[in-house]
Design a protein around this nucleic acid. Sequence first.
DNA 1: TCCATCTGATACCCTGAAAGCATTGATCGT
DNA 2: ACGATCAATGCTTTCAGGGTATCAGATGGA
Lengths: 295, 295
Amino acid sequence: MDTRHMRFFMALAETLHFGRAAERMNMSQPPFSRQIAMIERTLGVKLFERNSRNVALTPAGKHFMEDCRNVLGQFEDACRDVRLVASGMKGELRFGFMMHAAHSVVPELVQLYAKARPDVRLVLDERTPTEIDEMLVAGTLDAAVTFDCGYAPHLQTVLLARERLRIIMREDHPLATVGQIYPEKLREEKVIAAPAATAPALRSAINSYFSAKGIVPHVVLEPRLQHTIIQLVAKGLGVALIPVSLCTGMGTGLISRTLTDAPQLDVVLRAPMTTKNPAVSAFMEIGKSIQRTSL
Amino acid sequence: MDTRHMRFFMALAETLHFGRAAERMNMSQPPFSRQIAMIERTLGVKLFERNSRNVALTPAGKHFMEDCRNVLGQFEDACRDVRLVASGMKGELRFGFMMHAAHSVVPELVQLYAKARPDVRLVLDERTPTEIDEMLVAGTLDAAVTFDCGYAPHLQTVLLARERLRIIMREDHPLATVGQIYPEKLREEKVIAAPAATAPALRSAINSYFSAKGIVPHVVLEPRLQHTIIQLVAKGLGVALIPVSLCTGMGTGLISRTLTDAPQLDVVLRAPMTTKNPAVSAFMEIGKSIQRTSL
DNA sequence: TCCATCTGATACCCTGAAAGCATTGATCGT
DNA sequence: ACGATCAATGCTTTCAGGGTATCAGATGGA
């Protein structure tokens, strides 16, 4: 038994006429009759009640007809869908992003892609930049939004946005009255920043910002999660330098201020250069279109 | 493409080794390789990433694997189920019965059959005896419980029960005080009975009962439904002769009395002699087993 | 009642899809 | 560098399955 036999069966079940069913199958009646006989023999079931004048379905045949319709439908769907997956119109895309981008480019990117490729299941995975890099090379992620850390041999990169850092602090902090803050003001401040092992590009930008002025920042806490940093600032444990897009909606009690010569970081969309997932290319293209609008 | 190709694909997708997959398909490796290549060519989709050392699924292949598993499963199920339907273990059985039997043999018959053949969908259809006879010959019903009306050329018959008729009346009826009633007492009574066109066997039994004593019953109302007869008796419009099994649970206000030399009717299970539905035979067998216990 | 006609089953032949065997070519570990 | 492993390719052979011709049973009209 095979789907070809099921199609033979369906042709006869629908026409109830060997000649016309054979014609529909683009063959002559004798081999068609043989095929029907073969189907009944291999199944061991009489599917048609027939004489030289009439053809009718048996109850078993009627039941089989429903099942065949389903099987053939699913079969066609499977063959169609595999093409769609290969073309990137369908499938799955595991997309990683860092919290620092969650409020800026990620929502737009996800929304545009979901609209362009509604049959691709987007698996979102919020990670730290270092985790993202590891998962991209390991192939656990298909694409990710992260800070540009420069060296990336096997990765293709699309620049999405260039974000300046701002400083955040409690609104009762002594510096809260100052409009714009320059590094020298922060010489004595307690700074909260993600560790270099977690967000190398961000931490190195912060470090460079201070060291350019000959200052060694007083980093008192190094939480791995951006979320935690903001919470610690809110508790008055120090100040922090975070991307401008994260400064809105931090909750009450916190304010942000502009930094003189504020460090800026490139937010990029990355994917393995030799990705196997055909859904990625359209994702990168949408990244490029976002880049045009946001830069 | 065909299910055979899907099985080839699945063998390779599961083993990721051409030699072992070919072995599983009971063939040598070269033709197997060719089949895989053919599948990819006809689908126009690369399903495996392979070199002379490693075989791996592409994303499209991974997706196709899931679909193939479903399709092949449904395919096997369809082939298995058609055999079950042909053997009468699965399918549908349209079962008609008259209200006069709804309280006696029908519940037991249905219950026993549903237990013996849980995968056969029993379509119950309550009808008048005449409708049942018509539907049996027309093939609209597979089997039915009705009164034995004697002549039934193309039908097979199983005697299920022999029911005596009792007389029912309002409890405030003058005859209510009498313990056992003989026909002469009913000479002047208004009788309610189903018309001969609706329930020939029942009506003829009632008529014979009276005419044997030279009485012409005074039939004032001829409702087609048993339900209606009982309601009319309850309203005091007359008395009625009904099977003993219907005398329980008529509702308050009604009583039943034994009739002297009460007429008796055969309740039979019937099916077309040359039925196509394989589910019928077990149904008739269960009918026979009920017969043994109830007679 | 007989014949024309329709329809499914059978007989026979032939083609080509697909299997087997032998071999090649590429890759990896020693 | 060499052998082992494994997928791909070339060549031959076979049989599943298609085509044509024909038979056989049923139906309906003359």
